[in-house]
Design a protein around this nucleic acid. Structure first.
Lengths: 153, 153
DNA sequence: ATTAATTAAGTTGTGCGCAACTTAGTTGCG
DNA sequence: CGCAACTAAGTTGCGCACAACTTAATTAAT
């Protein structure tokens, strides 16, 4: 029972594999828009609320500035967003959709629909799976912040 | 109903976030063994069956040679595995645990136990979640191989 | 007002992950 | 045999992820 667990039995590996599989499904569709999956996630956030700060985007995606900053740089180079230094707090940079970035919204929504269909699950099943994963992430997140320092060697 | 979906409502994002969260939980523990999560996965495969080929490992992890080859190179440099050209088919390279690599098995198993506990889910819940994710991955995998060429533009 | 602590964003370095390509060994078919 | 098709592994290039660090602006605390 407590022998070496098989890789195929691991829920963690299943998450890792599922995550890459779904990104792989998005890839050919996003390629045609000139986007990667993380870039697409940023645009989804901005379609919902434009003008977010870099750190807000990082919090939503659970990514740090070392990932988000260069990603936004590429999104700006591609012409989908603009970055503006805020005058009331010069440390802050807000990110704004360009016309070109805003115009992708319709196509982007279609893509999420297609992916949902390809999952082979019903709407309710997807919701249930999502909620389970979010519980898992929350629980794991607590553990991480709890054991900042004390991984007793 | 068909408005722009919120990021927080997306099952795909939940997978992406959960995958990174669990790898983040593994990280400090694996760090102490001098391993990354993908490297740990390779060792799990070899603990189960030693002497696998590079392509077998790639198939199991669903990773291509562009990812696996340099990963194995680093595992070899770290002294956990050895690679051997097979004499019956000179194209094949088999990967073998060193004593040092084999010795990590006990510690490795402990780590998976700890992560299971940190998930905040029961054994049965984890099994159910894993099965759901594997269904999802399988279904998405079919879609990908099906639409190799015909993403009608 | 001065300065220490904090915060926001960005940079650097390493290791994936994957597409596209290369190299070399094997097989198939005339 | 000769050679095209295939296969296994590896290389290159780019975009994440993340740790560790830097820079610059703000706040707090005297």
């Amino acid at each position: 029972m407590d022998a070496t667990p098989r890789l195929s039995e691991q829920a963690c590996f299943a998450m890792y594999a599922a995550s890459r599989a779904v990104i792989g499904l998005y890839r050919p569709m996003l390629d045609r828009l000139g986007l990667t999956y993380p870039q697409f996630l940023v645009l989804m956030l901005l379609w919902e609320t434009d003008g977010r700060t870099v750190s807000d985007i990082g919090n939503e995606l659970q990514l740090d500035s070392g990932t988000v900053s260069p990603l936004l740089k590429r999104l700006e180079a591609a012409g989908f967003v603009e970055r503006r230094r805020e005058s009331d707090d010069e440390r802050r940079v807000t990110v704004h959709l360009t016309d070109s970035g805003a115009a992708l919204e319709t196509r982007g929504c279609e893509i999420t629909q297609v992916v949902g269909t390809a999952s082979g699950m019903s709407y309710d099943e997807l919701i249930a799976l999502r909620d389970r994963l979010n519980e898992f992430t929350a629980s794991v997140g607590d553990r991480e912040s709890a054991s900042e320092n004390n991984t007793s060697e």
